[in-house]
Design a protein around this nucleic acid. Structure first.
Lengths: 246, 246
DNA sequence: TAGTGGTCTAGACCACGGC
DNA sequence: CCGTGGTCTAGACCACTAC
């Protein structure tokens, strides 16, 4: 099933969550772990590399690895899908399509989705909520080749990601996010039940397939009193960068 | 000097930047790269793993690696330091301390900086700008053990990170960022030259040493018309997570 | 079916850290 | 000094892709 190094990484993560290894304490040496799990040192190194990338443990040449944190950051799957993220928190995701229509791709659409300008693309305006409370307004544009699979989905489908996976086998694999803050406009305020000019957290994102083919791009606006983003950085995974406005 | 796998990773990054390998094209097979660079397959794999974590290339078992992007995301050093980030963009970073004083650590300070409540900690309010235009308001609290090195720094020092490295050898290695949006308060508006209630991008962050010891924590507020954040995700480095407000 | 990446092994040497 | 992690090698087998 899963690779041996993944099993070992999981066991170590669980041990840290159980506080068998407490924050600040040292992990056993690579050779000891290798002996304990009956694998070679290389396999152990694959496992601990995953935890290091997650920021769970730190390492310095010559010294034992140190446990840095116990709470795992959310998984990639939870990031990709609003519904999966909600479920992981024990809350119920809701969704409601407000408007849905085909429009010819603008120049911007064409660049972001890597298709020809004028190609009909599907625009969807969707409000999403946690336990019924609206927290997110999504303005999404789907590429022409995936639109036929999106169009027939029921307006109140709680997880579009899951539906697309079930129907087409599509897995969202890579994404680029640009995060800033905007004042709520009239439509934003109305649909999110906040006052006009309230600060909203805006995330503009492009989602692609595992092969790098763009699937959708979206302007997401979150109620900032309800949702925030958390980014963890380490020397190994430098995923966050500041950007100036164009 | 640098490890061989890092040299190879650098060469591949440059080749992609030069568009020797264009977006969408395939990288040579691992065995070919190994032969070309005169190293073993394992070393090549270390190199391409770095590019994969950066989101530059994608891979699927059985198929050649594919080039996904050409522009590299900013380096970790640029993220950690406002001045280094500005310089990388060809702009000049400015800074001005507005207020600086010692206060006893609150319970929150004590938890975030892992020290005892009541310990005197250094609070610094600093405005930072790009080419003279204010874009960022930093409210930073420094741990007691680093405060003596921070206190004597000139109020208009453009790079505190660089000064601390020069003076004490301290390297910021890990950080946790929570990002949301807030409306500008009276002081925010005044110091950033924006109207009250303007949306600001807020980043609350904790910086630690490589060993995981907290150095400082800060409430940073960016003018959202001037700065945004960009996050790249891949299956390998899941650094971004949504968070609900507590 | 041949090629390719994913996984794993069993060694080796070096640089750094802690005692 | 000895233990540890960082690096590297030269092989092996398997699962999956592309043709």
């Amino acid at each position: 099933m899963a690779a041996r190094h993944e099993e070992i990484a999981d066991e170590l993560r669980r041990a840290i969550d159980r506080e068998e290894y407490t924050v600040g304490s040292r992990l056993p040496a690579e050779t000891d772990l290798a002996a304990h799990y009956g694998v070679s040192r290389g396999t152990v190194r694959q496992a601990v590399a995953a935890l290091t990338a997650e920021g769970l443990i730190g390492s310095r040449q010559g010294a034992r690895r140190v446990v840095l944190a116990s709470r795992r950051s959310q998984s990639f799957a939870e990031l990709r899908s609003f519904a999966q993220w909600a479920r992981a928190m024990g809350r119920e995701a809701t969704g409601q399509v407000i408007a849905q229509e085909y429009r010819p791709a603008t120049a911007e659409d064409a660049v972001r989705l890597q298709l020809r300008a004028g190609t009909p693309v599907l625009h969807v305006l969707r409000v999403r909520g946690l336990d019924g409370e609206p927290v997110l307004l999504e303005r999404t544009v789907y590429a022409d080749w995936i639109s036929p699979a999106v169009e027939p989905i029921e307006p109140d489908c709680p997880s579009v990601t899951q539906r697309l996976y079930d129907d087409t086998g599509l897995v969202f694999a890579y994404g680029e996010h640009v995060i800033d803050a905007v004042a709520a406009g009239a439509q934003d305020a109305d649909l999110l039940s906040v006052r006009r000019t309230s600060p909203l957290l805006r995330v503009r994102r492009v989602t692609t397939t595992r092969e790098g083919r763009p699937v959708e791009w979206s302007d997401d606006r979150y109620r900032s009193d309800a949702v925030s983003f958390s980014v963890h950085n380490s020397m190994d995974s430098n995923a966050l960068a500041r950007k100036t406005a164009e």
